[in-house]
Design a protein around this nucleic acid. Structure first.
Length: 435
RNA sequence: GCUGAGGUAGCCUAGCCCGGCAAGGCGCCAGCCUUGAAAGCUGGUGGCGGCAACGCCACGGGAGUUCAAAUCUCCCCCUCAGCGCCA
């Protein structure tokens, strides 16, 4: 959430910033929070006065008892207080609940360098790498090709688990694992600590790290439990230090998350397309950083550079876009997307999302930065970026490196993880019949 | 799943039986002392509201009883240990 202190002290600045998101409802939300906060503070003072009265009387009763004096008059005076207090507390709690609920829906303040625009068509390309022209164009959609090779089974997965799921089989499993291992090693070299987080997260920390709308459209809820399947390791990594004070000497903390991610993908383009591009379940290596507020812009660029380098080493052409104000999302103050070139689709499609969330997540999680027992604590910044989401990377690799003879040329950097093999395949007959 | 023990400030612990201003230790900060440091001594060290004086809150969460709840009652959550089950 944003800092309500900022809203109190400089409402105009908050409104100006949120106005860039081109969503008039946000300004109404700000006005609502502002007014509820003023009213709430008034009731807090009201309640405090009643409590102070109660405390004073209580102490006088105790003192009178001790002195052996009569307490009838004091008791009579106290009688009415609990009811009055209960009434004020009810109003106070209601105002606070409502204010907090509205406050939680105010998105993060945008960095000034985020381009102004209405949607993803107005994102600004800031870098491109690799040649679109020289890549070999696969003839068919990757999903069909993989099924024919016996490297993935979408039909049986549909039968067993539903649309959007898949069985990875044979060499593709090894390729998937080699991508994960390559990305992890790459990050470890750069000072990241590998972390496999829980794949389920409770509602409370989840609300602190994600857009509240995601609970309806993105997350799978486990029935009968207060947990959700994670949509990315970013979320449990952010929650790792929930409620804690991070030592200012210990940051930046760089974590390399490895997890399977689960997404319902309701709305949008759905999962109707056969293949691995948009699926309910995929593996991802994620960069995540806790840092001092003043360091986050620089580290954001580092995360982006690291993600770019991974795609360069995989020899996958890409471009980087600076995501515009209308498309940047609730949590991030600034976001780069890396879009890989998909030759069959003749299109750049998102493979990396690299965000500076500033203090938005950390404040909701109650994470502070400083020294225990010493004043002057601040809210740290959090950043996250994909290193590699294997599903989409596999699509890009298959589309670019699958040869006419059905063999897949392995990108050089992955060969050490595959026993030095330069090619995967050729296809062999499936061990089972048609579904 | 069963049984038991727990959850108190950044950390550790007391207080709970028997209701009456949440105590102590560690750590940290400042001052005194010192050539300097340590030790020692003194004072600080959380959150909310308030311009401030100050007030309020904070004992896992919630509800109840009471003039008054860390303390009594009820419900819930979490952690640990043992047992059970289990890859």
């Amino acid at each position: 959430m944003i800092d309500i202190e900022l809203l109190r002290s400089d409402r105009a600045r908050v409104e100006e910033n949120l106005g860039r998101r081109r969503n008039p409802a946000l300004l109404r939300l700000v006005a609502e929070v502002f007014e509820e906060d003023v009213a709430w503070r008034a009731t807090v003072q009201e309640a405090d006065r009643v409590r102070a009265q109660r405390n004073t009387l209580g102490q006088r009763i105790a003192a009178a008892r001790k002195a052996g004096e009569t307490t009838d008059a004091l008791l009579a005076e106290s009688k009415a207080l609990p009811e009055a207090l209960k009434e004020v507390e009810r109003r106070e709690a209601e105002l606070r609940r409502s204010r907090d609920q509205h406050l939680a829906r105010i998105p993060n303040l945008l960095d000034p360098s985020v381009p102004y625009g209405k949607d993803d068509t107005e994102n600004v390309v800031v870098a491109t790498w690799g040649s679109r022209g020289t890549v070999g164009a696969a003839k068919r959609p990757h999903g069909e090709a993989l099924e024919e090779l016996g490297w993935a089974d979408f039909e049986r997965a549909r039968r067993a688990s539903g649309a959007g799921f898949y069985y990875l089989e044979g060499p593709l499993v090894l390729l998937d694992l080699s991508l994960q291992r390559f990305a992890l090693d790459f990050l470890v070299e750069r000072g990241f600590t590998p972390v496999v987080p829980p794949f389920m997260l409770r509602r409370e920390p989840y609300e602190a790290v994600t857009d509240l709308n995601d609970f309806e459209s993105v997350m799978y809820k486990v029935e009968g439990e207060d947990v959700y399947l994670i949509a990315t390791s970013e979320h449990p990594l952010a929650a790792l230090y929930q409620g804690e004070i991070l030592d200012e000497e210990a940051v930046p903390i760089r974590l390399a998350g490895l997890s399977v991610n689960f997404r319902r993908e309701i709305g949008g383009h759905g999962v109707d397309q056969k293949g691995l591009f948009r699926v309910h379940q995929f593996s991802k290596v994620e960069q995540f950083v806790f840092c001092r507020p003043e360091d986050s812009p620089k580290i954001h660029e580092e995360l982006r550079e690291t993600a770019e380098e991974i795609f360069r080493r995989l020899e996958i052409p890409y471009r980087v876009v600076n995501v515009c104000t209308g498309d940047v999302g609730t949590i991030a103050a600034k976001k780069y997307d890396i879009e890989a070139w998909f030759p069959r689709q003749q299109a750049y499609r998102e493979v990396v999302s690299c965000s500076n969330c500033t203090d938005y997540q950390a404040r909701s999680l109650g994470i502070r930065l400083g020294r225990a027992g010493r004043p002057g604590k601040v809210v740290p910044h959090t950043l996250n970026s994909t290193a590699i989401a294997t599903s989409r990377a596999l699509v890009a690799i298959v589309e670019q490196h699958l040869q006419e003879d059905g063999r897949l040329e392995v990108p050089k950097v992955l060969r050490p993880y595959l026993g030095g093999r330069e090619h995967l395949g050729p296809p062999r007959p499936r061990a089972h019949g048609a579904p």
